[in-house]
């Protein structure tokens, strides 16, 4: 009798565990593969949240006119030259400074030499 009861208790525990496991499995499965109607609901809601918007008419017209002007300038070869970045000007200043410094050094050296010759 004791053995039978023990076996029954163990089996009832197993059954409970099996039910728990089954429920967990179902929950996980349901999470991974939701019913199509739920996905369709989300799809509809996203469609509403991202509804197409209308381009403001004034902006549309204004941009069209500006583009036409830019296109005309481009066609006529009147494109404004692209602004050179500051690095370009820095390079120009640095090279100019280098050239000036070299000339100044040469002049000083020549003057010192001529003075020493006179002495």
């Amino acid at each position: 009798m004791r053995i039978q009861r023990g076996i029954l208790e163990r089996f009832s525990g197993l059954e409970e565990r099996f039910v728990g496991y089954r429920e967990r499995l179902l929950r996980r499965f349901a999470k991974r593969s939701p019913a199509p109607e739920h996905v369709a609901e989300v799809e509809t809601a996203v469609g509403q949240a991202l509804a197409p918007v209308r381009t403001p008419p004034d902006f549309r017209r204004y941009l069209g006119q500006n583009l036409a002007l830019a296109a005309w300038r481009k066609g006529a070869g009147l494109e404004v030259e692209r602004f050179r970045p500051p690095r370009f000007w820095l390079a120009v200043v640095a090279i100019s400074a280098g050239v000036l410094a070299t000339i100044a050094t040469l002049l000083i050296a020549l003057r010192v030499r001529s003075n020493s010759v006179h002495e």
């Binding site: 918007v53 549309r60 069209g64 066609g75």
Partner: peptide, 23 residues
């Protein structure tokens, strides 16, 4: 060939591009 013809492309796509950028 002629940049002035770009207007037709602008008219065709401005609404779609604006819509995309707005969102």
């Amino acid at each position: 060939k002629d940049p002035l013809a770009f207007g037709a492309l602008y008219e065709r796509y401005v609404d779609r591009i604006y819509n995309y950028i707005f969102h």
